[in-house]
Amino acid sequence: MQHGRFLYGLQFAFTIAVCAFLVVPVVMSILAGLTVNYFVGLESGLTLRWVLEVWDGYRDTLFLSLGLALACLVLTLLLGVPLAYLLARSRGRLARAIEELLMLPVAVPGLATALGLIVAYGGLAGFRTSAAFILVGHVLFTLPFMVRSVLAVLSVIDLPTLEEGAASLGAGFAQRFRDIVLPNCRNGILAGALMVVTLSMGEFNMTWLLHTPFTKTLPVGLADAYASLRLEIGSAYTLIFFLLITPLLLALQALARPRRTVFAERDPSAENDS
């Protein structure tokens, strides 16, 4: 008993230590963004000055990032869900090859992908200077996550037979897609959406090369702020990012919760067939 209690204490202490390791920098950063002078310390007093300054100077990056993330989500849904469906339905070697190729933008460094885009499309001035240029990069980078998570859900259900069952009852392609395919990959779609929005919001690697002074996203602005302004401003920036992304993630997570509880009370007689 004594031994078990000691082990429990040890595990508890370890867990607390790990949490502290992760949480302390966040708290420090938040405090830094609210402190009058970080080098003096908290005695210098708390202020919203830095937050307001960031809001004034970088508001646009915030809206651009949100807009990009949403546009990216719409595009990955429109492209990714049908693509995952096609990949799930075809068992050919070509489908498997496409599945692998799709992961390339994740494996290749973002900088390389960005360079590729610039080399290929940099000459189209209107396109190069618009936010759409960044959007293309984000879609390339996030699409595999959408496809993968939808595909994962689709490959555990016997989709072809489910569709044949629906067809035998009179469902045409559109009805099958609406009534059978989409509802059954709902959880995959939501999980994918969560990934896409988070990744797009935080993407820096590629965006740093793709952006122009007029198309700065939040992470790019953040790097700017850290590099050229006071530490307090950078920290206040982080605080805003944090306030923005947390409710978004929580909302998506709540949506992604399964509709029916799997642990519903089971009638014991359900097991016997009589």
């Binding site: 259900i157 016997d158 037979t161 489910l162 044949e164 069952g165 629906a166 067809a167 035998s168 009852l169 009179g170 469902a171 045409g172 009534d179 059978i180 509802p183 059954n184 709902r186």
Partner: peptide
């Protein structure tokens, strides 16, 4: 005619019931 227009009932080995 494709299956959806033939009005046949099908029963499969794997049941093919819609989990949703």
């Amino acid at each position: 005619l494709p299956i959806e227009k033939r009005n046949v009932g099908m029963v499969f080995q794997s049941y093919a019931l819609f989990p949703n």
